[in-house]
Design a binder for these strands. Structure first.
Length: 288
DNA sequence: GATTGAATAT
DNA sequence: AATATTCAAT
């Protein structure tokens, strides 16, 4: 019984990136405030191929405006143009950054970080540091963590109390549950220890990862530096489970989009923000 | 005062 | 539904 789950998570464990592996992965999520605040000297736009952006509003949020005049590209927090009252003194403060979109990749980093820290130390700040995602805020993590905990709790309930007969590992149950398959959460494996808080037997978590997450990137140390790899608009993807979680091997989207092999490198962002809400989706590059 | 976690709001 | 923001407790 436990051997089975020990088996799967053993596999999972192998995939776990060591702290060092985790660290170097520096995502690029540029904080809007910073971008504007520092006038974004020249983020070097990587020049993606044909930015299919004609009909969209060119500007946007965070970062990267090639145009030096990054003054009022944002809609002011308050009536950007409407009221006209505020006038003009403190722009880059109280700006609302676009909603963060938790992509499967990003979520995976999250889970890995939590796994390495252990439930006890897995608090927003620490997780955030471990993840080392530039621009990711503690609030972002906290919010996600809250939901993640709910998800775990839900699973625990199902795995031992629910139907009765069902006692397989939560991960398994989750996979089998179509209706409740939380898309995002189900896409990454759940550490066994998470589901079994009280299991002295599985006492083998790392002592602690003194990862020096506090990197040396000063906000003002010259705004123009890294390569902003941030994208906006959300992307919809059939996440391809790295290890073995199956999703929907068959179901594919409508016959209009050419199926491209699982290559996510320069993903295109095709988004239909119905609301016009700006969202940030960051892609992990080279890590998975 | 800073963080956390839950409630609440968008 | 998914994130953000607020709020009380630590």
């Amino acid at each position: 019984m436990r051997e089975e789950d020990s088996n799967w998570f053993s596999k999972w464990e192998e995939e776990l990136p060591s702290p060092e592996e985790l660290m170097p992965l520096s995502q690029s999520l540029i904080t809007p405030d910073l971008a504007i605040a520092f006038n974004i000297p020249s983020p070097q736009q990587p020049l993606h191929h044909t930015p299919p952006h004609p009909p969209q509003h060119p500007p946007q949020s965070t970062a990267h405006s090639s145009q030096p005049n990054s003054s009022a590209e944002f809609d002011s927090p308050e009536g950007g143009g409407g009221g006209g009252g505020t006038g003009s003194d403190e722009p880059a403060r109280t700006l609302k950054r676009p909603r963060l979109v938790w992509t499967p990749q990003l979520h995976k980093r999250f889970v890995d970080a939590v796994a390495h820290l252990g439930i006890k130390n897995a608090v927003p700040k620490t997780i955030m540091q471990l993840m080392s995602v530039d621009g990711l805020t503690r609030e972002n993590v906290a919010s996600h963590l809250q939901k993640y905990r709910l998800y775990l709790k839900r699973m625990q309930g199902i795995s031992n109390g629910g139907g009765g007969g069902n006692n397989s590992p939560a991960a398994l149950s989750a996979s089998c549950m179509d209706p409740a398959t939380d898309h995002l959460f189900a896409s990454s494996p759940v550490p066994a220890h998470f589901l079994h808080p009280g299991r002295p037997n599985s006492e083998h978590f790392l002592p602690f990862v003194p990862v020096a997450a506090m990197q040396h990137h000063h906000p003002m140390a010259g705004a123009g530096h890294h390569h902003p790899q941030l994208q906006q608009q959300f992307r919809h993807f059939g996440n391809s489970p790295p290890n073995g979680q199956f999703e929907h091997p068959f179901v594919r989207q409508s016959p209009q989009q050419p199926q491209r092999t699982p290559h996510m490198e320069d993903v295109e962002s095709a988004a239909t923000a119905k609301n016009g809400r700006k969202v940030l989706t960051l892609f992990p590059t080279g890590d998975d």
